[in-house]
Each structure stands twice: as structure tokens, then as C-alpha cells.
Amino acid sequence: MPLVRLLQLTSPALPVGAYTYSQGLEWAVECSRVRNETDAAQWIGDLLSCSLACFEAPLVACQMRAWAAGDDVALQRLNDDFLASRETSELRAETAQMGYSLVRLLVDLDAWSGLPGWSSRLQAIESPAFPTVWTAAATAWQVPVADALVAYLWAWLENQVMAALKAVPLGQSAGQRLLAGLGERIPELVASAVDLPEVEWSNYTPGLALASSRHETQYSRLFRS
């Protein structure tokens, strides 16, 4: 069942609105920074390696350990740190909206049935970001941390590739090549992220911050970020 639950959490059908966000990719296309499959691979790959794997993934691992240990003080701090790391209003709104939607979904699914205390712990988190809610479900459903990180990075990668297919645009075969090539990086990135000391976390990606800032005033757009 942990594997089944993990697949449910990473399914593109998860109704949290992830498909409506490009995380700056749409502006990168608008300004011709991303024009083809090669450009998309570089843009998405750099974000995967320099932001997701160096900050968000180790934070997810740390949150899962905090959920398991009952350390709700650490969970609130990590949640606040993640919110503070969102450089633009649209990136902050994205994680807040997805977190809210996942909280509602877990209630609708009766996900906490037979898991006393989990619902109240999650509801006690102020302004829960998406990773905070996602890790609550993954931990409660006894998903191993390393497996959860693989799935979390894969879900992000798949969403970015789907955004590239729409925005560049690219064909389905190009999308599969991107997933195959970039997906090969995930096991090594997870191995590095799972125990990365917090002092070494970094999401220094100024290109993403600039793209997201520009996207907020982009005249015509498909995505909310």
C-alpha cells in the first residue's frame, strides 16, 4: 500500500492544480530563452539540479523525519522557511494554493481514517505550503523517505515537461526524451539530497526569480506562474 499511496500522490490526476503552473518557464519561452527541446532540457535540468535537488528535496526529507518524530515546531519552521524562499508573489501563491487544495483533498478522501492525530497536526500548521502537506501524507502512509524524494522530483519534472510541451511547443516524443534524459539524474540527486545538512541547502537560481517576476506582468499567458 505505501507504493500505491505514493503513486496516488504523484499522479498527474491529483487535483491540486499543478498543471496550471510553469514556474517561470512560460516567460523563458516568451523571451526566447527556451526555443526548442535542447533549450528546454537545459532550463528544466538546471532548475532540477540547482534548486529542487539542493533545497526543496532535502527540505522534503527533513519534513518527513519531523512528521515521523512528532516535531511540529520544526515542521512549522521548515514550512515558514519554504514560504520565505519563494522569490515572487506568484511562486508563493502557487505553493499556498496547492497546499490548501491538497489539505482539502485529503479530507475528502478520508485519508486520515485510522491515523489518529495526523489531521489535527496538519491543521495546526499555519499557512501550509505544498511540500508540508505532501510530506504529511507520505509519512502517514509510511512511504520510505528515499522513495518519496524520487517520486517528488519526478512529479515536478513531469509537470515542467508538460508545460514545455504546451508553451514551446514540443511534441510528445520530445517530451518523452526529456523525461528519459533528465529522469536519469534523479537517483543521484536523491542520494545527495536525502541527508544534505541544512547549512548546505541552497536555491540560488536568479534566472528563475527574474523569469517569474517578468511572468507576473506578461500580457498573454497560459500558466499562473
Rank of each mutant, 00 (worst) to 15 (best):
Q23F: 14
P169A: 09
N79G: 04
P144N: 03
S32I: 04
A163I: 07
L106A: 01
L78I: 00
P206D: 08
T217L: 15
A151Q: 08
Y21R: 15
L105A: 03
S120V: 15
P197K: 03
F130A: 05
T205Y: 12
P116L: 03
V145R: 09
E30C: 14
A53W: 00
L182K: 08
A140Y: 07
N36S: 12
Y21C: 15
F82E: 07
W27K: 13
H215Y: 10
L78V: 02
V161L: 05
T38E: 14
A167M: 06
F130I: 04
L59F: 00
T132L: 05
C54G: 02
A40T: 08
L52R: 10
S202T: 12
R5E: 14
S192N: 14
R104I: 02
T10K: 13
A129L: 03
E200F: 09
A28N: 10
S49M: 07
V168P: 07
A146P: 07
R177D: 06
A193C: 03
V199C: 06
L9C: 11
L105I: 00
A180R: 11
V194W: 06
A111T: 05
W141C: 04
A174N: 10
Q76A: 01
L25K: 13
R214V: 03
G24V: 10
N36H: 07
A18P: 14
V194F: 06
P144W: 03
S22Y: 11
V29Q: 08
N79P: 01
L59A: 01
V107G: 00
S119A: 11
A93K: 08
R224M: 12
A74K: 02
A57D: 01
L122Y: 03
P128W: 00
S220R: 15
S89E: 10
A167Y: 08
R104K: 10
I44E: 05
Y21T: 09
F130Y: 14
A155C: 10
G70Y: 01
G24Y: 13
T20S: 15
M98S: 01
P169V: 09
G207T: 12
M162W: 05
G45S: 02
L47M: 10
Q172L: 11
W43T: 05
D46C: 04
Y19W: 14
A193M: 05
E198K: 09
L109V: 00
L102G: 00
Y19T: 14
V199L: 08
W156F: 09
V161S: 05
P187I: 08
V190N: 06
E37M: 06
A93P: 04
L6R: 13
E30Q: 15
G171P: 06
S119K: 10
Q172E: 13
L178W: 06
L83Q: 01
V199D: 12
E56N: 07
A57G: 02
A28V: 12
R224E: 13
W118H: 06
P187M: 07
Q42M: 12
P58G: 00
L59T: 01
V190A: 06
D46Y: 03
L153Y: 07
Y219H: 12
R35T: 12
A193W: 04
G117W: 00
Q23K: 11
V4N: 15
